[in-house]
């Protein structure tokens, strides 16, 4: 399975334990998981089920207590902080619940910032900031600052920023969690379009089960374990989804 290039990410017996003083919390229990290239995966589950921990491990902002994580052919489990920084810069596109744009930069500059990070490693940008913002339908809002954009627009800028480095994985932690219904659908559509049109692998974490129906596969986590894996035969287009 490790060398199978059809998988963008694999987790083998991954455990994550947190120490809170004398209390030990097991967030993930020897989790095995494989994610195909071009897959749209939704991770759902109640609070404390380990879904965000899983996403953090996939994104390289946390390290496993044991087990092995391979992303795009690289075993990141033993990466140093510096290696993880370069890994995130080159391989991962993040979309946060609170958008997390840099407030002092315009929409275009927020995307350009990510492009500048990529270009430091001599990776030529696949697309310009204008093109990327065009992909999410914000070509008219290039020079607006985050505070001048609606929540949905901000999140779409975040999507464009996530695409700047042409990442292997796009990770969304509750990407619609801070948006209203219709705006949330717009953002979801932008991600789905990228998944379908460009074959980007997207993984979203959500507590909103109906929303997971846009995915190809739904992973139900419970108490740090995969409780259920659900293959969605016919994912619902985001514009048709209701919650």
């Amino acid at each position: 399975m490790m060398n199978d290039t059809s998988y963008i990410a694999t987790l083998e017996k991954v455990r994550k334990v947190y120490h809170m003083g004398e209390i030990v919390i097991s967030a993930l229990h020897e989790l095995d998981l494989s994610i195909k290239r071009g897959e749209f995966l939704a991770v759902v589950g109640p609070s404390g089920s380990g879904k965000t921990t899983l996403l953090n491990l996939l994104g390289g902002i946390d390290t496993p207590s044991s087990g092995r994580i391979t992303i795009d052919g690289e075993d990141i489990s033993g990466f140093s902080q510096k290696e993880l920084t370069y890994f995130r810069r080159e391989k991962i596109g993040f979309i946060f619940q609170f958008f997390n744009l840099i407030p002092t930069l315009t929409a275009r500059e927020n995307v350009d910032f990510a492009i500048e990070l990529a270009s430091r490693d001599k990776v030529p940008p696949s697309r310009s900031a204008i093109e990327l913002l065009g992909v999410v339908g914000l070509e008219q809002r290039l020079n607006h600052f985050p505070a001048q954009l609606s929540g949905g627009e901000q999140q779409r800028v975040a999507v464009a920023r996530a695409l700047a480095m042409d990442p292997a994985l796009i990770l969304g932690d509750e990407p619609t969690g801070n948006l209203d219904f219709s705006t949330g659908k717009l953002v979801l559509k932008a991600m789905k379009d990228l998944n379908v049109a460009e074959g980007k692998t997207c993984i979203i974490v959500t507590h909103n089960t109906p929303l997971a129906q846009v995915a190809d596969r739904i992973l139900h986590l419970h108490d740090g374990r995969i409780a259920e894996e659900e293959i969605v035969e016919r994912p619902i287009p985001p514009e048709e989804i209701t919650w």
Partner: peptide, 14 residues
Amino acid sequence: SREIATMRTIGEDR
């Protein structure tokens, strides 16, 4: 801290 953490998350080095 959120802004700085975001920059680090998307790949800005120390």
